[in-house]
């Protein structure tokens, strides 16, 4: 099947659109979360030493461990979305391409 024919498939348009919709926002979320922490470390380090709720555990430690957990959650969200939305579209395209090969 010709590349141009594949590109004109409605599933192809849907796939690239769906991927863009998830890929860039999630990437941006990770970048923003990480650099927000890095910039706070750079400009307001003392603020991160404040306790969360009267104890010893500081805001910085909670935010730091939070970013680690956040990264794991982001990868989970993407894989869930990719398996549910992206993969069926990609499979449909591959099937049509094979059928017309």
């Amino acid at each position: 099947m010709q590349i141009d024919t594949i590109r004109q498939l409605p599933e192809y348009a849907a796939l690239t659109r769906a991927r863009k919709k998830i890929m860039w926002p999630l990437s941006l979320a990770v970048i923003v979360a990480y650099f927000a922490l890095i910039l706070t470390i750079a400009f307001e380090p003392a603020a991160l030493g404040n306790p969360v709720s009267g104890g010893v555990t500081s805001i910085g430690v909670v935010m730091g461990l939070g970013v680690i957990v956040f990264c794991m959650i982001i990868t989970g969200i993407y894989v869930y979305y990719a398996n549910r939305v992206l993969e069926p579209l990609a499979q449909a395209i591959r099937k049509k391409a094979e059928g017309n090969a």
Partner: peptide, 8 residues
């Protein structure tokens, strides 16, 4: 933090 970038 590089890992989500690798994935996405």
């Amino acid at each position: 933090v590089g890992w989500p970038i690798v994935l996405l």
